[in-house]
Design a protein around this nucleic acid. Structure first.
Length: 155
RNA sequence: UCAGCCGGCCGGGCGGCCGCUCCGGGGUUCGCCCCGGGGAGGAAAGUCCGGGCUCCAUGGAGAGACGGUGCCGGAUAACGUCCGGCGGGGGCGACCCCAGGGACAGUGCCACAGAGAGCAGACCGCCCCGGACUCGUCCGGGGUCAGGGUGAAAGGGUGCGGUAAGAGCGCACCGCGGACGCGGCAACGCGGACGGCAUGGCAAACCCCACCGGGAGCAAAACCGAAUAGGGGCGGCGCGCCCCUCGCGAGAGGGGCAGGCCCGCUCUCCAGGCCAGUCGCCCGGGUUGGUUGCUCGAGGCGGUCGGCGACGACCGUCCCAGAGGAAUGGCCGCCACGUCGGGGGGUGCGAGCCCUCCGGCCCUACAGAACCCGGCUUACAGGCCGGCUGAUCCA
């Protein structure tokens, strides 16, 4: 049975932000293929302050962790063996969305963001340009760091 | 029964499946597994005060600056908190609200309006005197603040006397100040000779007075830990300037001043320490990560005693979250509560209230520990308990 490690280091989060993306109304998924180390999936959660207050952010993170655990239990072996980091950026509707809906979102997102690069060069065309109002931040990799730290504000 | 005031408390429950973290015990192929137990709040929040703790400084004293507090007494480790009083204000009342020291130490401000706003003031008006003439008006000089008018505020109020008109000018009452006396630990209260009324307000204006205060914070701090450099320790040698005397000189002797740094806001003083250069030997490792700090504490609960009370003393008993991209939950079912819509029934003139059924919603409000305590402030669906006040009804 497959398991998914938790992502905890800040540089890993920043690296994943440069990878492939997958959007739903509930969340945005970002994926990055790791070069080195052993195989397996790792996943981190980001819930920014703009989503809601601390209580609401915590609830979203707990529900997403439960979703991850459930999805991981029934993951195909080839998908689970991919060497990739995923970051889920929660959005406001994740607070009230049905549990099954969140699970479906994740099941769709996982293969999408961890797909190995095709030999063809059509990569950038298929990638959604995040220039819309989503998050309102530039698409450049050195993004403002504070925006995507999932830590509850330390004040 | 209705309206209201004060204090205290709760803030979903039960069950099923699957998880997280810490502690204790056991097992292990060292990956982990099994058993038992603990696991968010009254505000965990805002970070506004007060402490503990840690680091920075070698201790002590004084002055200044800056900041804070501000009726009195008490409680407390401390507080800007709390308790009990006082004074002022509001309410029929239970009760509630108030940054509430000093304006004869000084400086300053009091806009606009108004004649005049701080050693007051004459615009209209009133009155007296003189003059002019067209004979009831004008001009000049003077008195006056009762009236008009302005203003937040016009130098006590009302009445009588008094006067040319007036005025505490005189008198009565009220107000105000007030030596002194009495009560109270005190704030303050009560009485009050006497004073013809004087010291108008603002100190969330400067200021004065009294009291308090070093700074930064658990991302503090300590330890483990790979490399270079800075760095640290020990030991040897070495010690600035001026004057006088001796000496050809290197230098020697005596006297005086000692330079710089360390007193984490500044300055001064006392005590004390260090450095000033070079050589040799040894130690050591900024950051990432790990461990500690990290939960037994001004602790919870129960009781007795003291106190009006805040609270204190004593006895008994309990161990009660310790995460670290951050655990304390996820999903489902049932029930209760609330709310919305609809049907039926009861009651009432009626708004409405009560009972019951069906469906939907929220599936709970505010809100998530981050070193720990004491407070304050702010947010909060709904509910429970106790005491009290005012109406109304019955006896």
């Amino acid at each position: 049975m497959a398991t998914i490690e938790r992502l905890k280091k800040r540089p890993d989060f920043l690296a994943a932000a440069a990878g492939r993306r997958f959007h739903t109304d509930r969340m945005t998924a970002q994926g990055r293929l790791r070069e080195s180390e052993a195989g397996g999936l790792r996943l981190g959660l980001t819930v920014t302050k703009r989503v809601g207050h601390a209580t609401e952010r915590n609830r979203i993170k707990r529900r997403l962790r439960a979703v991850v655990a459930e999805v991981a239990a029934s993951l195909p072996a080839d998908l689970a063996a991919r060497t990739a980091d995923i970051v889920l950026i929660a959005r406001r509707p994740a607070l009230d969305a049905a549990f099954a809906t969140l699970a479906d979102d994740l099941r769709q997102a996982l293969p999408a963001v961890t797909r190995p690069p095709k030999p063809g060069a059509g990569e950038s065309a298929g990638r959604p340009r995040p220039s819309s109002r989503r998050g309102g931040r530039p698409a450049a990799p050195p993004a403002p760091p504070n925006e995507r730290v999932g830590v509850p504000d330390g004040q």
